[in-house]
Design a protein around this nucleic acid. Structure first.
Lengths: 124, 124
DNA sequence: CAGCAATAGTATCCATTGGTAACCAGCTAC
DNA sequence: GTAGCTGGTTACCAATGGATACTATTGCTG
């Protein structure tokens, strides 16, 4: 089931399928969270860094650069003093909010059951 | 906005919020893919390993053990020769298929736009 | 009985990614 | 001139993931 000869649809056993490529991309430590945080409007570098709390600036820079390269966020630099850099979701980035929110809602719904399962597993 | 005093709902800026805990858990390299692969029925260790293709047995074992600990899959050992181990989604595991499929569908829909954006970024 | 084959892993070592801490560039206010 | 703000970068260390070899169990082959 080949689409345009480059990516295979649906066949998750094929490493070249689009889903696997994307899971590999947004399945790193901070990407999904960054997109979710930007859903209510643009944020500055420092707002993201301080808000996340535990991310190293180096890693946040990497995450945002990759998102920019993928066309999911834009990066605007204002030549002020002190400098200001604002990150904004593109329309494509915004379209990812829905699916990510589905996962997020699932998480909120099942987090306590998962924690309970872990406790039982560890104690048994 | 605290639920039971342990997890905070909705506030993604709080590292203790359920979404962030779960994103940290299923946002590793193979967990989401393993759940998606199990959606059509149980699979053996070797079927998962060979199907994924590029995962080291050590890492697949870690992934499946964590999923078992979280209560998302069950592990059944048949004392035969050669041995047989079958992994199956629990009801909670199956309930994650919907949200993950939403992400998967998004991926299939936007993979070519993302690839194009990357090419432009790299060439510009 | 010696040797081999099949499955589901471990064990060991190496590579890649993420984290910590320190520093920089540009400008402004003291 | 020196300190401070922002948005990083650099150098180094820790944790996670990957490659390869090996093991345990037991029936089958010769």
């Amino acid at each position: 089931m080949v689409t345009n000869g480059q990516y295979e649809r649906g066949d998750l056993f094929n490493p070249a399928c689009g889903t696997r490529v994307i899971l590999d991309r947004i399945g790193d430590k901070w990407t999904a969270l960054a997109v979710l945080l930007l859903q209510h409007g643009p944020l500055r570098f420092t707002e993201l860094r301080d808000g996340i709390g535990s991310v190293a600036p180096k890693v946040l820079t990497q995450t945002l650069r990759r998102l920019e390269r993928d066309g999911l966020v834009t990066r605007e630099v204002f030549a002020e003093v002190p400098p200001r850099v604002v990150y904004t979701l593109t329309p494509m980035g915004s379209s990812l909010i829905g699916p990510l929110t589905a996962v997020s809602d699932w998480a909120e719904e099942h987090i306590s059951a998962i924690t309970a399962s872990q406790a039982e597993y560890d104690g048994a």
